[in-house]
Structures are given as C-alpha cells and as structure tokens.
Nucleic acid binder design. Structure first.
Lengths: 194, 194
DNA sequence: GTCTATATAGTGATAGAC
DNA sequence: GTCTATCACTATATAGAC
C-alpha cells in the first residue's frame, strides 16, 4: 500500500501525502514548505530531515507514484494476451484511477515537470510511455492494428482518453470517467484497428 | 498582426512577447518580473505602469492569444460547409500553429491557468472549446458523425491531435506535426465518422 | 512615458535543543 | 526522530525623479 492510498501514521508518508494534495489543489509553486508542514502536521525541521529540499519532495513523489502506476499497467498487460484486451484494460485502469486518485493522475501525467525539476528532468512518464508504445507496436506487427508511424500510433489510440482525463481533472467534464469508458473505447478502437 | 508574430517597437507588446517567451522556456513561476524586464529591454517601472502585476501579464496574454486563435478557428469553420472539412481544417491549423508558434499553443492549451490565475480563472480555452463542441454537435445532428455523448465526442475527435501536440511541445515527438497530420486525421475520422 | 532606487514580505533552508 | 527559532535571500511591488 502506497502512501497515497492510506492515511499513514508514518510521518514521511504523511509529508508526501500532504505535498501531493497541496500540489493538486494549489500547484507546486504556490505550495510553500510551510503549507506542507501545516497540512502534514509535522515540523519544518522534520521535512528537511527526510528531504533535501522542496524539489526532492516532488521528485520522490514522481518516482514512487509513477513506479506504482507502471507496475499496475504491467499487471494489466500480463493478464491479457492481445493488444485489444491489453489497451482496453489500460484505459479502464486510467479511468478508475482518475476517479479514485485524481491527484496522482494529475501529478504524473499533467504536471509540468520540466519547470519543477530543473535538474535531470525525467522524460515525462518515460517508463510508462515506453511500455504502452511497445504494446501498441506489437499490435501493429501482429496485424491487430493497422500500420501507423510510431509517433502517431500512441496518440491515436490513447490520446482521446488522455484528453478526456485532462478535461475531467480541470473540472470541465462532470461525468465520472467509467461512465464514458465504453464510448471512448469504441472511438479508440475504431481509430487504430486493422 | 499580433505581438507574437512580429518584433514590435511598441514597448507594451515587447513586454508581452518577452513574457510569453520566458513562460514557455522557464515557466511562469520561475520567470521573475526582472527576467521579463531584461528580455524586453525596458525598466521595471514601465512594466508596472502597463500591468498591475505579473498575474495581469499572464491574463492579458491569455486573452489576446486565445482571442486570436478563436478568430482563426472561426475563419476555418466559415470557409467550409461540413463538419468533415471544418475539423480537418482546424487540425491542420493546430499542427501548423504548433510549429510556427509553439509558445502560443503551449500557453493557451497546456498551461495550468488555475494555478497562475487564482482570481476568476477562465475556463481553460472556454470560447475555443465551445466553438469546436458546437461544430461537432452539428456533425452528429446532420448524420456526418455517429451519435456520441457531448463529453466523449470532442476528445474522441481531436484528443489524439491534442495529445500529439502535447508530446511535441515536451520534446518527445521529433517529427514536425504537418508530417503526421494525414495519419492523425485518418485516425480521428475513423473514430467518429457515422 | 520612462527610469532608478528602495521597501516589504514571504519562502526556502539551517542551527541547535531535546 | 522531532521540535522551535531564526537566517538569508529573492522577488514583487512602490515611490518618486526626469
């Protein structure tokens, strides 16, 4: 169980959790370390014992959260044997994750990490994107999906859902995403099927 | 001609242009008013004569840029008579705009305005989105597009392109977007055509 | 309209006791 | 591990001359 799923007594996790919530509601730059201190109900000193600086909080958050999502996507892929079912499962997972933990999805997929982390900026969701790209390429190779250039295939398939998630996180879309999942999947599949 | 298209002698426009460029390269919060001052080659005092504060610079930028894009989309719509051609034209316009003025697209579509503008946050690209939504709804009504819920239709149609633009702006996609336009359009159309 | 110089506040970060 | 108190600095914003 990760820190974002349960309210931990562990103070380090409380700090991370508080930071994540504040980054979501106020944004990284408008969140001061004092804000995090207050929300996590710990002292400033403790925060700087666990983390070198504010940036390292964000970096830790990014690594732990994206690793968690990565593992879940891997599981979804392992549970199915073709690209159709795999991508369907990933889309459903995204939809549910957005409803359950919008702050996680927001931070991993829609935060401008290059602005936050000047040093060694992780390519945005690099590992996750690589996994999905690979899955889609397999689908093209085995004839499930129509031939497309690598750059166009990913966005064509999952771009619609990503956009919907973005709008949902911004409060533009009111419906819970699982409600719209079937429709979005239909569009996505039509877009790329062979 | 807007301030972002030509290097103006007008100092107010120079300030806006400098701010836009810096917001793109460093991000809004990492850009200080002194940075803008330096880049625009004016004094601090002058900036605060034209704009109440840094936030108002961003707000002005948002209004003027999105108005400009809005008008261009309106033109594209007016030049065609059906949803197919209209949306095709909008996609082509987006692709070209991203190549010509990435800073404009980045600021209008992918900046987290709620974090920047705490007071009266404009619904992200509200007017533009309304126009596109309306165009798509027409297409559904007249049978060009298959029936879909309003929330799903927009993302299904243009979400792929929006995602591709996002990746391009982040430096993940290397190809100029007009190169990928045909492929992206094919996917988009398959996703929503009746 | 345009400039320089300065006040003010708040933030990231540290020191050091317990 | 955990706390309080405090520092040093930067950035926003203003005052006021030209």
């Amino acid at each position: 169980m990760s820190f974002y799923e349960t309210s931990s007594k562990n103070k380090r996790d409380r700090i991370l959790h508080a930071a994540l919530m504040l980054f979501r509601s106020k944004g990284y730059f408008k969140t001061s370390v004092h804000d995090i201190r207050e929300q996590a109900d710990v002292s400033i000193g403790l925060i700087y014992r666990y983390f070198k600086n504010k940036e390292e909080i964000a970096q830790t958050l990014y690594q732990e959260l994206s690793e968690d999502v990565f593992v879940n996507i891997e599981k979804n892929i392992a549970q199915h044997t073709n690209t159709h079912d795999r991508c369907r499962a990933i889309m459903a997972y995204y939809a549910q994750l957005t409803e359950d933990f919008p702050e996680v999805v927001d931070f991993i997929f829609f935060t401008r990490h290059k602005e936050i982390l000047p040093t060694a900026p992780p390519v945005c969701t690099g590992k996750i994107q690589g996994l999905i790209r690979q899955t889609i390429q397999e689908g093209i190779k085995n004839g499930e999906l129509r031939p497309m250039s690598p750059a166009a295939a990913g966005p064509s398939f999952l771009g619609g859902m990503m956009r919907l998630i973005h709008l949902r996180l911004m409060g533009v879309v009111q419906e819970p995403l699982p409600t719209l999942l079937e429709e979005m999947w239909e569009s996505a599949w039509r877009a790329v099927k062979a």
